[in-house]
Design a binder for these strands. Sequence first.
DNA 1: TATTGACTTGGAGTTAGCTCCAAATGGTAA
DNA 2: TTACCATTTGGAGCTAACTCCAAGTCAATA
Lengths: 129, 129
Amino acid sequence: MMTIAEVSEKFDLSQDTLRYYERIGLIPRVNRNKSGVRNYTEEDCKWIEFIKCMRGAGLPVEVLIEYVGLFQQGDETLEARKELLIEQRNQLIMRIEEMKKTLERLNYKIERYEQAIVAKEKTLKRPEN
Amino acid sequence: MMTIAEVSEKFDLSQDTLRYYERIGLIPRVNRNKSGVRNYTEEDCKWIEFIKCMRGAGLPVEVLIEYVGLFQQGDETLEARKELLIEQRNQLIMRIEEMKKTLERLNYKIERYEQAIVAKEKTLKRPEN
DNA sequence: TATTGACTTGGAGTTAGCTCCAAATGGTAA
DNA sequence: TTACCATTTGGAGCTAACTCCAAGTCAATA
């Protein structure tokens, strides 16, 4: 059992973000003690870690909310959840591909800059010019 | 020479986005004809294509504005531009790495779902249960 | 008992990156 | 000439995803 302060620290997510995630259903509701204070279980932490990971890869909040919703409906939604994940995987693969291409382009561009800088330095060293 | 309508079509960017990019300095200023209408050159198109590519990989608008600004200052900024690109390349590499890990995780999760679904179907077919 | 400090809530505010709008203009077709 | 259409501008509005705030509650400490 952890407090929101500890969970915030552990996952490097602000307390506000943790409350926000819960409010919008991005993580299942966290239990409170008698005085209304959140008590995060291991299970809650796993959700948070999972969501943080997926968000970090750019999966939209909206889609993850849907996933959590399906999960809470039980085994009837196994297929739907699988389909959702497959769709997101496809998107992710495409984004990675796009980024890899851009990376190649950046590599090339940087190389060209290095050449240009060397060429410029040579020019400067040439006497009377 | 192309009109904004043609450029918009060609790069699949709205006319509003093209004007917006120019307004904020994300692409250099485009020349107008006597009546103030934009006339995009080949050069302009190359900038647009470059910016679209970099934005697609998630480079922030702010950083790209800086790059364009440096470019317009001429050869004095070769080194600064190179450094800027290297920094962005590093960020990009990290993001790709993160996404790849998430992709692996999604693959694993989907596999587990497939197993779970098969298991569930077997259960359903067992008589009287 | 009074104060402190972590926590709660609902709601407002912020940021990045567009997207839309209204009013004005200029070229072209009927 | 009149009507139409694409374009212009500055500025307002929008969406996603937080982030901040004020007012209130509770447990623990001085």
